[in-house]
Nucleic acid binder design. Sequence first.
RNA 1: GGGCGGUUAGCUCAGUUGGUAGAGCACCUGCCUUACACGCAGGGAGUCGCUGGUUCGAGUCCAGCACCGCCCACCA
Length: 882
Amino acid sequence: MSIGKEYKPDEVEAYWVETWGRAETFQAQPDSAASPFCMVIPPPNVTGELHIGHVLVYTLHDIVARWRRMQGRDVLWLPGTDHAGIATQMVVERELAREGRTRADLGREAFERRVWEWKETYGDRINGSLRRLGASVDWTRERFTLDQGLSRAVRTVFVQLYRDGLIYRDRYIVNWCPRCHTALSDLEAVHESESGKLWRIRYVDPTGSPGVVVATTRPETLFGDTAVAVHPDDPRFQAFIGKHVRVPLTDRTVPVVADSFVDPTFGTGAVKITPAHDPNDFHAGRRLNLPQIVALDSHGKMTEAAGSFCGQDRFEARRQVVEALAEAGLLEGVQEHALAVARCQRCSTVVEPHVSDQWFVRVAPLAEPAIQAVESGSIRFVPDNWAKTYFEWMRNIHDWCISRQLWWGHQIPAWHCQQCAAIQVTESAPSTCDRCGGSVVQDPDVLDTWFSSALWPFSTLGWPDKSSDLARYYPTDLLITGHDIIFFWVARMIMMGLRFMGDVPFREVYIHGLVRDAQGQKMSKSKGNTVNPAEVQARYGTDAVRFTMAVLAAPGNDIPLAPERMEGYRAFANKLWNASRFVLLKASTEETAGAVDSCEPPFAERWIRSRLQVVIGEANRSLESYRFDRAAEALYHFVWGEYCDWYIEWVKPDLAEAATPAQRMRARATLVEVLGTALRLLHPFMPFVTAELWRLLPDSPGDVATAPWPTVDPRWIDPAVDAEAILVQEIIAGIRNVRAQSNIEPGLKIEVLLRVRDAEQAAIVARHVDLIRPLARAGSVRVITGELPTAGVARGVVRGVEIAVPLAGLVDVEAERSRLRRDLDKISKEIITRAERLEDPGFCMRAPPAVVEKERLTHRELAARADRLREALSQLDVGGAT
RNA sequence: GGGCGGUUAGCUCAGUUGGUAGAGCACCUGCCUUACACGCAGGGAGUCGCUGGUUCGAGUCCAGCACCGCCCACCA
């Protein structure tokens, strides 16, 4: 076995990606007696690339998966990809555009074939990235939202919901993207605040009165006006209600109607009603039985209804209409006006309210039980404040427009009769119309991508068949996802799961933050601050990237990803590597001895084992509550701050020639055992380096991924030992501090004198002189019972233990004086605050006696120490003078 | 308009039940000490957003304010 000075992630990762990729390590074991633990992956876009946000989610998933697996659970982490309707179609259309073609040139079938080719070509990229991340998914159960099984699930759900009256078709005003040429759901129309204008336009009364001035942000839609509305109680307009006014630039007149939805305080108090181009007006139109006039077509261009403006783009038309109004003397004013513009989530085109035939899910009846499930605790959000967001949305939910005028997706299982226009909704194509016998044609629309995603937790497990996987793994245990898709995905999975499985789709939902850049800015391609996963994995190692994600994943917080953090955890991986290197070099000896068990565990061993139990407990508690950050931090601190910084240093003498064989064996065994446990604890976070090191351990115990998860052995927990070790460590640090502050040559062996507070401390120091001496680079360490010498020494104090290093002639008098003064200053301030507290009768009477007593003791001690410092200072002056 | 978060060291953030403010990074100083310079040792650094209240005692509990962020929304 050879192990280099540097951890080289690329070689190690390549080996393990290969090993884990071909082995069946991560295949679920449905026949095992182990209790199942299931997660479904939030499916990435099949033609997309893994971005840094995926790295976060999948790292968190994998931590849980590996941890649960090591705990002995039968883990199923099910992988798969999403067909991602609009997104994918756009990508392929863009490719076509480069060839100078459109999807219309190809026709639907050829276009669909083209997208499938894309999927075959690029679908593997995402899986390769997932492998390189170390994701321990069950590849034998991989799914795709458009594969046969899932498509059948989609059709089954659609048909059932239709028969239950929860899916309906309506000619309705929807969000329409004129560029993508499809309807969008409310969620896919993203509102952005922009500055616009509010125009005041006069609608004259043909009978002669001045008419009514309306306020609008969209003058170009006036060609679609079919009424002007005012508030029924608005005194300004009483005379006009029921009369007709002329729509500017046209010959049409429309009635002035009264409706209480009009806000008399806004604008002029009168509003034009354009039922075909404004959601509000659409409803008003339905209420008031107004006709619809379509002034804008599905491409956002003016129709013939706009007369001479016909064919113009909507924004151009707006300019020209305003101009024409001004010329006609009908423009009464214009003002700046902040408005929320809805844009297409995919292409940012301004969304147009558009009346068309669409399919909808009646959501309210589905939402009710979904709210219940979270209220009752059947589903738990982590952190739980996300439940509020969920409730807020669910309680105000609107029907969901699920039809898209796209070609890539699940075609709606509805057939239209070409003769009688009857609609049949069935899972497979009927041969003829069941009403008139005419020929039928399938509805051309496809379903919103999120429709199939909503079924993911059960469709992937075999539903609608009663598969054994479904029986064993549904409900899944945990869903990990971002808050940005709580409405898109989480809520809908809950509704569909409850409806079709009669049970929740998952018991817990962990909501992670968004990955941002080091300055906390949102990452975006346009800002150029994105982080490429493959790049950082190559630079820092996958384990470092993963560990960074884990340690930054504080619940409720976004993840500011700074390169320095990844550098830091690359160093940690290297530290672990080198600590292991030390252990392995010491352990790979020919020496064998049997007497290990018979000798008492030395103090350092008792300490590190005690600390180990504590960190195991901490890791467990943290993981149970999804505090990935705490678990990672605890492990980092244990490995680096305790195992490496103290235990390895303390144990070195036991490994030396001068030690007994039994001491050496004991030390080696402990080093290996504690390291092995640390490797197992770290494995979920840093799978590669831990797997490699575990493989190199003596007697090569197999794959760490299937090694048992450590459990706390309470017999080793010893708070007294912990406390004792802390005192010893602080004394060492105190001596080092004296050395550094007094500019004592690093290599020089010094004499150390200690004045302790009590017999207990004296005993502790006496017991551990051998632990103090080498780390303090001291030739001798002596406990003095009387006063410490005040002249010719460098001194310090820690936890009531006063330290003096006699160094005749070597003491830097100036440095020592300023140091003593600083100490005295600090202590004096502390004495004052404590004295004030003790003089406060309120404190003495009301605070618990123990607290008061402790305060009094500390005060006395500090005062005594201040005296000694003053003494030392005066002596220093005397000594310095000589 | 409604809702949800946040404000603690130069940066990013921890701070469990109120009891002398922490970590990582950055910074300064000294060390190639025989696992590791991706390292070792030491150090400096904070009016815990503001104002009031409860309390012997508030970063922590309460109220108000300020600023910042996010989400939802059919006020033209």
